[in-house]
Design a protein around this nucleic acid. Structure first.
Lengths: 126, 126
DNA sequence: ATATGTGCAAACTCTTTGCATGGAG
DNA sequence: CTCCATGCAAAGAGTTTGCACATAT
């Protein structure tokens, strides 16, 4: 019943470091590759376990963009959505949010959260 | 180089029927289950093959909702979005769309399309 | 000393593919 | 009669889990 205690391991620290240092959301595989610069033997299973743990703790947010593998980014950021560029396939943050998004649901549906994804061309690819 | 000819099989007809009769996007597994009412032995591989074929033809649209398996719906339908129930994991159509969604993009981003996904509880699971 | 964390490999899930048989044309 | 389509089972990709050992506390 006590919350499980979190140990400070080299691999866990490496994983946090990698995500702190990244300016974009990373896939588990990317986290592993980058993390191995700090901890050479870093296993993919360990990345998955920790990334999931950190997401459950609320430290990371899962970014699931249709058609791409799941990515993770720091959760600290304020509510935002993503813009995906068709050309370079990168994801960008989009701030703000239409006021009545959640009132779109039909009668009887309880909305708890929402995602908005914009697609198009980023300034660089225009 | 001639386009491969399409045969009218019982399973192919069942798969089309199931998707025509559905008011919501269906996963391949759901298509199989519903299709087996028409063709008992309907195999999942057959569903995958046909659904992919129909999507390539433009008759079906792929609906990729973060966190759920891919779903398919008729391509002809008017602009709409989706609601995903946390409990039963089914996807439902949501009509309408906030007016200024596409103006959320920062300067310099050319928006071409967008997705909105609502999450919560459907009437049955409330 | 103790129990959590890790690495490895096996298990799982979802999807695709190879092959022999079935059936549309 | 021809070939395409199907069903089955095996193969792949991505993710999770079981287990024995390592290690943070």
């Amino acid at each position: 019943m006590s919350e499980s205690f979190q140990r400070e391991t080299r691999q866990r620290r490496a994983i946090r470091r990698v995500l702190l240092d990244s300016s974009r959301p990373l896939t588990p595989e990317e986290v592993q590759e980058l993390g191995q610069r700090h901890v050479p033997g870093l296993g993919l299973a360990t990345v998955y376990r920790n990334v999931k743990l950190l997401a459950d703790e609320g430290w990371l947010a899962q970014v699931e963009l249709p058609g791409s593998p799941v990515r993770y980014e720091l959760a600290e950021r304020p509510h935002h959505h993503h813009f995906v560029c068709h050309a370079c396939d990168q994801a960008f943050d989009v701030h703000g949010c239409p006021p009545k998004v959640e009132s779109m649901a039909p009668e009887g549906f309880q909305v708890e959260s929402h995602d908005i994804i914009l697609y198009g061309l980023c300034p660089t690819c225009t």
